[in-house]
């Protein structure tokens, strides 16, 4: 016999929170100007979907995230694999990577705007830049953590540098690459919303900021809700991609 299922607890907690929020807001214990009841937020969301405003802003942000994500992660994976394989390259680049990695990329956003202007280029660049080092370091760690036995097998059976890159380093580091990509997706969302708050005329971040300025608090909450939903959906998408990329991994 199976033990009691606790799955319903996972539904109870968010629903309970919303219910408490609804009651507090409606009774006036929490100021409804700052904490509008969830039912109102949902209604606002529906209106904004119908008017096309919300899909537009989501589309703008999503496009920036996807382009920035590809532009940042593809070179990061390639360089990470190379750095994991080649010790001289690692020695040469590691100090720079270690120094730039911890800088909050949003802090250099003014510089990026200065060079690239306020348009799409600066948004895409800030996303690419903020995930590049994260993916790079994870990929490199993935190669470094590989058992030497795999490299011995490859070399004993005639693999040259190129074959070792594609048949050992890349597939071997794939689990770690995906760890990096999943973390990066979260960072990409954080940084794009941040960048749109600071200087933009469209996107979810812009929506949140503008709603705050015109005191449309419900719309602001819609922006926050959408950001959370996007993060959740991105995780699901990456999980699916991960299973697709690694059919060789045992499933439990």
């Amino acid at each position: 016999m199976n033990g009691p299922s606790y799955r319903w607890l996972a539904v109870i907690s968010p629903l309970g929170l919303l219910l408490v929020w609804e009651i507090l807001s409606r009774t006036g214990v929490a100021d409804p100007r700052f904490f509008p009841p969830p039912s109102t937020i949902i209604r606002t969301l529906a209106d904004m979907v119908r008017s096309g405003e919300l899909p537009f802003h989501i589309g703008v942000s999503l496009r920036r995230i996807l382009i920035g994500f590809v532009l940042g992660s593809v070179p990061a994976v390639l360089l990470g694999l190379a750095m994991g394989l080649a010790r001289p390259l690692r020695a040469l680049l590691m100090p720079i990577v270690a120094a730039i990695y911890p800088i909050p990329k949003i802090a250099i956003y003014p510089l990026i705007i200065f060079y690239l202007g306020i348009g799409e280029a600066s948004k895409v660049t800030i996303v690419a830049l903020s995930i590049f080092f994260l993916v790079l370091l994870n990929t490199m760690a993935g190669v470094l953590g590989l058992d030497r036995a795999y490299f011995n097998i490859a070399r004993a059976y005639g693999a040259g540098a190129r074959s070792i890159f594609t048949t050992v380093a890349m597939p071997g580091a794939m689990p770690q690459i995906f760890t990096g990509l999943k973390l990066a997706m979260g960072f990409a969302l954080i940084v794009i919303v941040g960048a749109e708050l600071l200087g933009s005329d469209a996107g979810i971040g812009f929506l949140i900021w503008r709603s705050y300025q015109i005191f449309a608090i419900e719309a602001m909450y819609v922006g926050l809700l959408v950001t959370a939903m996007l993060g959740w959906l991105a995780t699901i998408a990456l999980d699916w991609l991960e299973r697709l990329a690694m059919p060789w991994r045992p499933t439990n």
């Binding site: 074959s163 050992v168 060789w248």
Partner: peptide
């Protein structure tokens, strides 16, 4: 043909390749 073919102890296959791909592995470099 390969002059020497080495058979390893412990980890002897590449886990991300199928049985066929593992068996073809030496040949693909030849």
């Amino acid at each position: 043909r390969l002059v020497t073919a080495l058979i390893f102890q412990g980890i002897s296959t590449l886990p991300w390749l199928t049985v066929l791909q593992n068996t073809e592995y030496g040949l693909r470099h030849m």
